[in-house]
Amino acid sequence: MNITAALGFLWDYRLALFIGLGNTLYFTAVGLAFGLALGFLVSVVRQVGHPVLKVIATVYVEIFRGTPVLIQLFWFFFCLPALLGMELGNVFSTVLTLSLYMGAISSESFRAALKAIGSEQRDACVALGLPARVSVPYVILPQTVMRAVPTLLSNCVTLFKESALVSAVGMADLMYQGQMIADATARPIEILTATALIYFVIAFSVTRTVTFYERSYLSRMRL
């Protein structure tokens, strides 16, 4: 195999790959936005919510962590619309699944971070006469977020990687485009390797950022 030829071949399909990457990033970003908000909410509910809400939140988290994302996608694509008796739209089903999945895995990260703030920090807030309107935004929240950031970022990488599954329900993401081109041209090696590399570069840079953040900020503060 000739590298120049391979690169030239890939260059011909750059637009298709680019569109696929755009969709992958779009699905991931929307899933992240809704998922993180949901995850934080669920972690708070599991910490301080009404007992009934706590049970609901726990069941939700366990179901989405305890089943393959692929079956979740299939369920929201084929079962939910039938149950509701209405069309949901493929993009909506995709984004809904990814958001719910992200909500479940990130809620665990938030929960661990909330737990890690010891009761001693809360005692200090009382001893300094800090009311909740001060202690929550200035003491509890910043520490929760700073502690949660490394695991949340790896949750993001997980979601980014899991988003490749949407190709199985026909969404035109990077994986889907790669497979389509591979099938159409019968040259899977170049195109699948390129696809893998694109995923790798993005996921790897985020992972490195996490390590850097942990080393520079968290260790300095001994959080």
Binding site: M175, L192, A203
Partner: peptide, 16 residues
């Protein structure tokens, strides 16, 4: 293997 989707790994290995 940690920074690429498992699906990509499976498909890559199957095709390549």
């Amino acid at each position: 293997f940690r920074c690429t989707p498992a699906l990509v790994q499976i498909i890559w290995i199957f095709y390549c």
